[in-house]
Design a binder for these strands. Structure first.
Lengths: 213, 213, 213, 213
DNA sequence: AATGAATGAGAGTTCATTCAT
DNA sequence: GATGAATGAACTCTCATTCAT
């Protein structure tokens, strides 16, 4: 599409790599790494298969780019919020529940989780990226927040890292459930509702023991 | 194995199909369905590739056999225990935590979970088997137990199916974590410890509100 | 089945090889050489696959045996009849038409023809057997009979070998048609009726020209 | 082809699918459907095995293309000529004999016939294509022409469809003979000569009975 | 003599990657 | 830069043949 009237120094296509990464995320999320076909990604990005190799050396390289460019930024917001949250512990958890609802509309979280879990074994390199760049940070931030709340006496004793896992687990599981079983007839979960109910349960469960006369 | 000259054919009276299913479970758990190569399964089972087809029609058929013969029996025990448990709710949860520790030593649960999640989208047929034959039953049993406890006033109001998910989520997530991130340097979780702490948290969190003067 | 009471010097099974050859003919006729599976032949013969190798070295060897033992004897009768026929030419052709009807009930002629034609290119060795041992003889006998009839003034001039081919062609083609196209909805031919009509046509067509004033 | 260094990829502007179909026809004609290896077809077409799948979905699809693109057009001419022929019946048959001679130089008829006959049983789908798209038409056209000739009193009574078969049978058989037995030492037939002699025989044999005083 | 479980070479098919254009 | 036709290695599955029993 040679647009004659355009000045020469302007790019014809603003962000080819970015478009490819978006398309790739969608396909990886849907099929997983191994089953994703570069043909599909190229078609969805509106480029030729060969064009992919102008920007990415291999399929794995493209996958890495998806993780770094399309997923990481969206998730970083979450744990930065956690780290920055000033207020009392229950408020943090409730804010977290809300925030997660937002992320769910931005990202195909289910697909992403599926692809992380499903392909971790076959591509340890990728699992490392996930862990080091994203997940460890997120869990660490929440762990620290819980530790701080314990120090303030807002949360009862116990391993804070495990508590962090307890907070996240059911929400993540409901996302996975919807992704895996809803398409084959499983009754789906309303993820935000799960998040809300779970957060309240955790707030109650983590409250320090009242002195019981 | 003091044999003179490595016989080309070894015929063991032992349960060939069973051995193949075990080998297949291991490889599927490690690689996922798509990435698992029949060659690997055969080698691990100590037979030739062709021999697999004496017992299983296709790769998918073999996968089904793994689910039905190697996995289902181990899990059925869990939800049968749940359904049969007579006692008060906290005791049930604590028993569940214990039981799960047992299953974890019997089955490569992490790998199994990985393969369910990772391949569900590409093989809906298999996801259906998982849901209908195993997971729905387990979740249903726990949901019912929680509902009953609510009726007895032992558990506070709320969606019992979501509560069931909340009980399971963190435990499952810790298993997944160990599977996915431990091999690449992530600090592992002690799954039974997670189960114990989480169960206590849930017992506290689900307890009916005390009358507050 | 060790029949204890039988005298030792009697064979338990009278004619294993013969039974195998019969089964093989049926399967080869149905599927052709390449598509015929030894498994099917063994099953139909009521023996194990391994047993085939006690009597025949290879699949090709078994095929050869089918040609020699099951097919050749049945066809020899035909051309021996031709050679021996004393009477006038029309009577010979009419007798031939009748005889062919008999062979059709004895042998899966369609299947046999199919397998000769279909596999000749891939197994020249077998084509040679067919030609040398069977077909050349049959065509030769008919050619000679026609030549003799020409000498007696009963048949008009022309290449007698071609005349022989003309006699056989339509009958064979009707057999082939029924084999190939009847199963997929083609209107079948009544082979004996074809033979009768064709023989009459040939008798008329081969009659010497009447003196035309 | 004086090329410097054998380029790995050759891109010819020429009609790749057409070349592949031609190569496939040759190999199918020589080996039959089942025994034809895609490797051979690819090699003969000068492409890689994978390239076949750029144009044809499966081996069977490729076979269909051979029938429709390479064979059908050549044969359609024949029966269209039959249907269009205006003149008296003997002239039609003589024209037919001539036309067949032409087709024989265009198409590997023998190989084609071999592959139809040999594989019909195993691939009914293909037999159906043959029957519906080609053979039934041809036989039908000839049948109709003969029926019309009977109505005009040029051909004696009798089943016209069988007469049509009688016309074709020997010619086809001579082709088959040359294909099957000539390579192993059988004396070949001169197909056009067979056609000429047979046509004359049929003209005489089908002539209405003269009033015999 | 007879079995049938087991083998292993080779088939059709798929797809990440390459390269002439 | 961009294309997409072409490659070739790897996969699942088949089956004639073998051999411990």
């Amino acid at each position: 599409m040679p647009e004659a009237s355009e000045p020469k120094f302007r790019r014809r296509k603003a962000d080819r790599p970015g478009e490819i990464v978006q398309a790739a995320m969608a396909v990886f999320a849907e099929k997983g790494f191994a089953a994703a076909r570069l043909d599909d990604i190229a078609r969805r990005a509106g480029v030729s298969k060969g064009a992919l190799y102008l920007y990415f050396e291999t399929k794995e390289d493209l996958f890495r780019a998806v993780v770094h460019q399309a997923i990481a930024p969206n998730l970083e917001g979450v744990w930065r919020m956690i780290a920055a949250h000033p207020g009392p512990f229950p408020a943090l958890l409730r804010a977290l529940a809300t925030r997660i609802g937002v992320v769910l509309t931005t990202l195909p979280v289910g697909g992403v989780v599926k692809m992380v879990i499903g392909e971790a074994g076959n591509f340890p390199e990728l699992a490392r990226v996930w862990h080091d760049d994203l997940v460890a940070h997120a869990l660490g931030a929440l762990t620290q927040a819980i530790g701080a709340a314990q120090a303030r006496g807002e949360v009862k004793p116990g391993d804070p890292r495990v508590y962090a896992l307890q907070v996240i687990g059911p929400i993540l599981l409901s996302v996975i459930w919807d992704e895996v079983f809803a398409p084959v007839g499983g009754a789906p979960f309303d993820v935000p509702a799960v998040a809300r109910q779970h957060v309240e349960t955790m707030i109650a469960g983590l409250a320090p023991q009242k002195a019981r006369p």
